[in-house]
Amino acid sequence: MPVKEGTYGLLAEFDTPGALVHATEAARDAGYRRMECYTPYPVEEAAEALGVVRNRVPLLTLMGGIMGLTTAFLMQTWISRWGYPMNFAGRPLFSWPAFIIPTYEWTILFSGLSAAFGMLALNGLPQPYHPLFNAPNFRQGATDHKFFLCLEATDPRFDVNETRAFLEQFHAVSVVEVDL
């Protein structure tokens, strides 16, 4: 596998969530799209400023639920009707009311698991390496008291000098270039 080289992006550090949100909104207005905010706790305005309004977790949850529903129902149907046909109190072999509760449980189980693992997968986790860990101030502040905005180099609008000048106008504590 070839070693990737070059710049991952420019990381701006802020002391307050307000400054972060302001810079993020300005960056979006300026046409940047490949960017991400990093905050020690959830800042809803930051997600808003990034334009993150939708994700695919609900869809994955629904699909998981439908999968659980059909799996459980068809499995019980097969077991009772063909696999192990047994006479319970003279009822028909295909006694669907008895299948509903396990079907219900499986629907919930599968949708819950799909929601949890779908969320992790869509977040790109687990991720043992991330270029931002190359920035010392990120390592120290991102989980504690600092708010970061990273404009990524893959963005067509990205230009090391121009983007740096753009970020510096927001009075960031620092703007550092992060290697891949």
């Binding site: 969530p17 302001h22 909104e25 809803e44 305005e45």
Partner: peptide, 13 residues
């Protein structure tokens, strides 16, 4: 944490 009351643009209310 001060959160939700910061001033920022975009004409947000």
């Amino acid at each position: 944490m001060a959160h939700g009351n910061e001033q920022h643009g975009h004409g947000a209310l």
